[in-house]
Design a protein around this nucleic acid. Sequence first.
DNA 1: TTGAAAGCGCTAACAC
DNA 2: GTGTTAGCGCTTTCAA
Lengths: 346, 346
Amino acid sequence: MKRKYTIKDIANLAGVSKGTVDRVLHKRGKVSQIALEKVNKVLEEIDYHPNLMARSLKNNKIFSICVLIPDPTLDPYWLPCVEGIQNAKAEFIPFNISVETFYFNPESTTSFLEMNSIIINKSPDAVLLVPLFLKETLNVVKKYNLSNILVTTFNNQVHSEYIKSFVGQDLIQSGRVAAKLFDSIIKKGNIAIIHINEVFKNAIHMQEKEKGFRNYFEELKDSDYKIITCKLKHPNFERDLTTFLQENTSISGIFITTSKAYQVAELIEKKDKNKITIIGYDLLDENIKYLNNGVIDFLINQNPKRQAYLGTINLIEYFIFDKEISSKLLLPIDIINSENAKYHIT
Amino acid sequence: MKRKYTIKDIANLAGVSKGTVDRVLHKRGKVSQIALEKVNKVLEEIDYHPNLMARSLKNNKIFSICVLIPDPTLDPYWLPCVEGIQNAKAEFIPFNISVETFYFNPESTTSFLEMNSIIINKSPDAVLLVPLFLKETLNVVKKYNLSNILVTTFNNQVHSEYIKSFVGQDLIQSGRVAAKLFDSIIKKGNIAIIHINEVFKNAIHMQEKEKGFRNYFEELKDSDYKIITCKLKHPNFERDLTTFLQENTSISGIFITTSKAYQVAELIEKKDKNKITIIGYDLLDENIKYLNNGVIDFLINQNPKRQAYLGTINLIEYFIFDKEISSKLLLPIDIINSENAKYHIT
DNA sequence: TTGAAAGCGCTAACAC
DNA sequence: GTGTTAGCGCTTTCAA
């Protein structure tokens, strides 16, 4: 049975000691030219890979990771993240990893800042966060850097030299996916883009999706479509939407750029019997309900669970296996209908 | 900084030696009732997880895995598998794993048997194979068992006590996904199911997809659909399909149960101007071409790359981390249109 | 500049 | 039955 080469093997082959080989491998200097050459020669000839197990054996330190996400009880979109993080953690139970999750109020920058302070005080080795608020994030990230805490993100992309990784989706492209779906289903007509509660925290998300969406139709040669944007806010949501639909009776498709498609579906189901095609985002229970009864046609899955999972794994493997951190990871854009939904829920 | 508990800690806390703790942990017997209780008491109180790194340090053996798949040059469907296997391998370069890939001719049971013989002679620790041929597989799997070689499978499910794992898709459900897509797009009319080269090796795949497909429409309350099955074989493929379409002018949708949708698309593009909705399987270059130019509307991705990747990972992690082998892994059924295709390719 | 040696956590052989 | 010990591959310390 084959064996792997070890440092001892190299030492023997090169006629030096293990210590010298180690110094060469790690470029620690203090090696004579002759020894260096002898070792390098052997290294060129054989296929040596250090045994990571042995290397990390010394580390009896528990690496700690803090994850900061919006409170799932305030917005169910984030609920799957908890499980994603849990899964990542479970997969590495046997290793020295501690993962702690914190929640902030997605409507409150103060809450975001507070939780970050708490995390900094715990001085973990790394933090994985959802940077909902641009300005605050840029600020907080600097502090992490000063405390030598590694910062990675998911779901929302913020650019900063202190953010080492982002896991998420290409939002413009996801708007195009929705557009193409409409294009397959309704051959022409008016389509409404509905933004619900477009406040600063989600504005970029919504705008990019709309951009991709419109983009697709603009590229069509002889397009028979008309796209109307409609911004709605609670608590007048229901009233305004009703008015909007009355004023635009020709609408045959509705695209909702947030995870709140069920709110539109609820109203459409009651009011409108002639079929309007509805496409929204995310597999919330409420959305799935309307997907299954045929009111919502498609959902695009942003896969928060997998985003959180991969974000966490990314860090864990960096710590225990010295793997490189992938600086940008774009997840596939999942098209969900009533029949394949169950494989994307858990 | 926190530390993990070690066997030494347990030994100290329980007032016994490391050896005794080890015997308790591994139930090797030869432990007095008193010692057993002392150790168990400590184990209950603390959260102990053995250090897998240290455990596997002893293993200077290179675990070897052989993967057997149909030759990608004979059927491009299998091409992504090569990359999936490669990725899995690359991820574990630093560990003691050797992964070797073998190809067989998907049209030839002889070739399948031959390659399996070759693999058995290499006596690897495990084999991951695509069991295209039922009878031959059952046979070959017995031989692997006699040689103490672990067998796992992907893409095609074969039931045998000697097959420890299957990675694949729920084919019936994937037929339903296609059906639902048609249901979204064309509100009524005739749909053709086209089986291309339905020979024994793929018969089950095709039949299950058709079953799910028909199933969906049967469940619809007032269905306005008529489903027609059409079996085609090369070399008369083009002629017969043309005839079929001439005899069934009312067809507004075509469902192709294999990865050869492009062959149908090619013909449709030429002959038929009034739009027929086409749904097929798999992201072959040829299929993507017709997806992008609008002839094919949707492709369902069976994700051979990920199947091969997960199948390989499954084995690797079993060997190096003692992880349990998941006996059945059903992948999500990906719906692909021209806009999200690029995130599912490569 | 170099080699020898201890030790990381765990296993297994061995002596008592 | 039990404790001691050597050793897996690698890092690090220490003495030469």
